[in-house]
Amino acid sequence: MATKPRNKVIDNDTPLIIAIQGGQGARFEELVTRYEGKLYNFGLRICKDPSDAEDLVQETFIGIFRYIQDFRQETKFKNWMYRIATSVCHRMRRRSKYAPERELSLDEFLPGDHAEIDTELPDWAAMPIHQVLNHELGEHLKASVKELPPQYRLVLVLRDMEGFSTEETANILGITATNVKVRLHRARLFVREELKGYFS
């Protein structure tokens, strides 16, 4: 039985991708200009240090360069690019001496009983974000995200920092939407605990 062809996804990147696929290889640099900053910041949020982030950017663009003729526009180009970037992350991780994967259990974050929970909303959650989120807090937050086990870090960064939907994140990582939701919730709870420590 023949498989039904998927609809093509058209967005702002489509004309440029079609041009490159059609032989205008010199325009690849426009893709680099468009996405190098996004990928670099993705790398900074995922990798342990800036030099790893640079490696991630370079390896990702090399992957895009090699496989762009295979891109069939069945998803947004940006999502396909992040799929390559996350596979680069996995490859880099296998090459490195990172700690083994660790599961976060929901029980770690469940309050024991009501007596342990402050019913007063803390200032950091009550005040407007722009009054609280300064450079120091931003740096602390990024450091907290790096403390997350990698499978949770990737989900949190893609969902809450890069702005992908649950469905898109599932497609990028090749996991189910349910799995994305479970990991995201635990990752957020982990980061919230770090923030509580920062503000206490």
């Binding site: 900074l44 309050p111 909303l121 803390p122 937050l141 509580k196």
Partner: peptide
């Protein structure tokens, strides 16, 4: 409510971290 609002704020901070 505290639990929900602090979690919401955590998400807000993550979304608001500026790019370098």
């Amino acid at each position: 409510i505290t639990c929900l609002e602090t979690l919401k704020r955590t998400v807000g901070f993550c979304e608001g971290v500026p790019e370098e």
